[in-house]
Design a protein around this nucleic acid. Structure first.
Lengths: 220, 220
DNA sequence: TTTTGTATAAGAGAAAACCTGATTTTTTTA
DNA sequence: TAAAAAAATCAGGTTTTCTCTTATACAAAA
């Protein structure tokens, strides 16, 4: 099967061991293409900005940006991307919130991996996939309440590139070299970032970038 | 390779998803034979009772029987079986106990799976295998001393003032106003900081300050 | 008492950031 | 599809900030 026809999946889990395992499992399914891996929400947004993703497998309990925030951001900016939550516990308190936020699937990690594969196919086909009937029926009811308006700032892919390099402490000149564009261009992106974030200067932008966890994500 | 010569591994993890992933990973190693899986300590003892196991991969945090009890039981009845602990956190409190109980390896799940494979081979060959960070944590705990190949850098009070303000993203001029000294003086302090930390420029100093947690401490 | 550490500072040159535009391509939307 | 918005690209000039060199005074330590 050609890659274009496969289901494009992105996995986000802060445990590399788990990531390795899931990759190994999904690689056996020939209708699924694992197009990326992330260990935090920042990386998720980073990858989404560069690549189309059909299904996002999201571990809740990631650092940097918690699962819920990531769901909100992803759903807002990429509503067509389906989200399957991978959780440790079935008694997750935030489950209602997650449903409201628009996740398409929810499975607990003590299920077998075939559940995950099923879920991926299911949500990709437009059908929700929840671990059990209870979730589906009882909690689905809560879903018709409006979600809270949170300001979501969207960065262009290039702006993200710059933001990631800013977080490493590079100057415009260095960034330009790294990205094969001129210093001026980099500075334009920086200016845009400053505007979008309503920050007064570069130092605070660096601070923002570091504190939000940018920079660690490799921009391949 | 014949099965008799492979390393016989038993995995115990209460998350089936993880189990599936680990199985998938280990199946690619042709010197390792996964001879069993368990989702709690009871099952572990059960399998050990009728099968020889070289290495037991044990997730701590399993229900029914906690990891520690399992270690004790296994070590008591099957002392020749090596145990590798798979844990979620490096700051595990029981780590000292586990070490004393005789585990041969300890890795955290945010490591890659190749670590696990290495650990299996290592402990099977009679060598312990501990995650570096784990080692550090446990050693530090034992001798409760600040460990470190890190040289202790001492800052003067004034240097600290400046460092704290740097972490807030202020410029020399602003710091000068805040500290009632001239811009030049602030810059001297900054220069000293750069020297002491062997950093090449202010941006990396800001990064350092933020990452080390300066700035939040108010210098009233 | 000589050295070391700390606090203070000026002036010049270099570097980086910031402002003010502007062009081209892509994507969205009306 | 045509118009509008968003994204990517860049130059020139001004201003701010950093960096380097050099310097004085005082206190504590050796």
């Amino acid at each position: 099967m050609e890659i274009q026809n496969k289901i494009k999946v992105l996995i986000a889990d802060d445990h590399k061991m788990m990531l390795d395992g899931l990759r190994s499992i999904l690689s056996k399914e020939n209708d699924i293409a694992l197009i990326g891996e992330a260990i935090n929400g920042i990386q998720v947004m980073d990858i989404l900005a560069h690549t189309k993703v059909d299904v996002l497998i999201l571990d809740i309990g990631m650092p940097e940006m918690d699962g819920y925030d990531t769901v909100l951001n992803v759903k807002k900016q990429y509503p067509e991307t389906k989200i399957v939550i991978l959780s440790f516990h079935k008694d997750e308190k935030h489950i209602g919130k997650l449903l409201k936020a628009g996740v398409s699937g929810y499975i607990v990690k003590d299920r077998g991996s075939e559940e995950l594969v099923k879920a991926i196919r299911s949500v990709n086909a437009g059908k929700d996939y929840f671990d059990n009937e209870v979730l589906q029926v009882s909690l689905r009811a809560m879903q018709n309440k409006s979600a809270g308006p949170e300001k979501i700032i969207k960065f262009s892919p290039r702006e993200l590139d710059v933001l990631n390099l800013i977080a490493e402490g590079l100057s415009s000149k260095e960034m330009g070299k790294r990205l094969f564009i001129s210093e001026s261009t980099v500075e334009t992106y920086r200016k845009n970032l400053l505007e979008k974030l309503a920050l007064p200067n570069s130092k605070l932008l660096l601070k923002y970038a570091i504190e939000k966890g940018y920079g660690k994500s490799s921009l391949s």
